[in-house]
């Protein structure tokens, strides 16, 4: 059932996201063309256009990645807590399957948006001169060598980095799923309640972080940076699991669609 949910969610997300992707690629191509024009012309107009295109290109990338998150979140809300919730909640699927399907589809959308952004950068950079391209290749080469050196000297750092990425990526989405679900517990002013809860959660997170930071710093210096990394990873896993279970509980026991 998760694959079926995933299939339909990905279709619903990408039917909108594709337009953002096309815009990013269009600006990348436009930038590429303008670079070629600029290099072959003394006219300042091309340069001005180039600056505008680069500006919109950066906006488009931000919009693409933002839209990937926003579409995943908005579909979670719309298909569970509005009229469409009647359809979703009458499907022969468990709340766990629903949350997993929606989480995976949102993650895939974010990863795809990020990958497309990098691809567009390659298209954009292809317009630069051979020497500029060589400098970029050399830069990436140096970054690669640095990572390889770190991995050779302390492979655990790479493992921790990868695990950290894996547990952090879904955390934002799961937190937002949880916040939206809590907001639906209120009988009136649900959007305000959702916003209020999100602010409260952020304040609580900031207070707890500032209380824990000195202890992490002490452990990092006097015991081991790896210990601190793994403690942070465990905390993030706990947040992920906690948000998932809490959201599942609310969907299973507390949703009351009153449209």
């Amino acid at each position: 059932m998760v694959t079926k949910i995933l299939k339909h969610e990905l279709y619903a997300i990408f039917r909108v996201l594709i337009f953002f992707g096309i815009a990013v690629l269009a600006f990348a191509v436009a930038g590429r063309v303008l670079i070629a024009v600029m290099l072959g012309s003394a006219d300042g107009t091309a340069g001005l256009l180039f600056v505008l295109v680069v500006m919109f290109y950066i906006f488009a990338i931000c919009a693409l990645i933002g839209a990937a998150y926003a579409l995943g979140i908005s579909r979670f809300y719309k298909t569970l807590f509005t009229g469409e919730g009647y359809m979703t909640l009458s499907l022969p699927v468990t709340p766990s399957q629903l949350i997993t399907g929606k989480l995976l589809s949102s993650l895939i959308a974010v990863i795809a948006a990020t990958a497309l952004s990098f691809l567009s950068m390659l298209i954009f950079l292809a317009g630069w001169s051979a020497s500029a391209m060589q400098e970029f290749y050399d830069l990436f080469g140096e970054i690669g060598n640095a990572i390889a050196t770190i991995a050779w000297n302390d492979p655990w750092l790479v493992v921790e980095g990868v695990v950290n990425l894996i547990v952090t990526l879904p955390m934002i989405l799961l937190l937002l799923f949880f916040v939206i679900s809590v907001g639906q517990l209120f009988t009136s002013r649900r959007k305000l309640a959702t916003f209020g809860f999100a602010v409260g959660l952020y304040i609580a997170y900031s207070i707890i972080s500032s209380l824990l930071m000195p202890h992490f710093a002490y452990l990092s210096v006097n015991v081991s940076t790896h210990l601190v990394s793994w403690i942070q990873i465990v905390i993030k896993i706990a947040i992920d699991v906690g948000c998932f279970l809490a959201t599942r509980y609310i969907i299973k026991n507390k949703v009351n669609l009153v449209i």
Partner: peptide, 21 residues
Amino acid sequence: PCPQTKAFTAYLPDAHFLSEW
């Protein structure tokens, strides 16, 4: 009520439930 019962129960709610798009 569980996914198993939903598999053999067809429900028409008193609200518009279809995705407009």
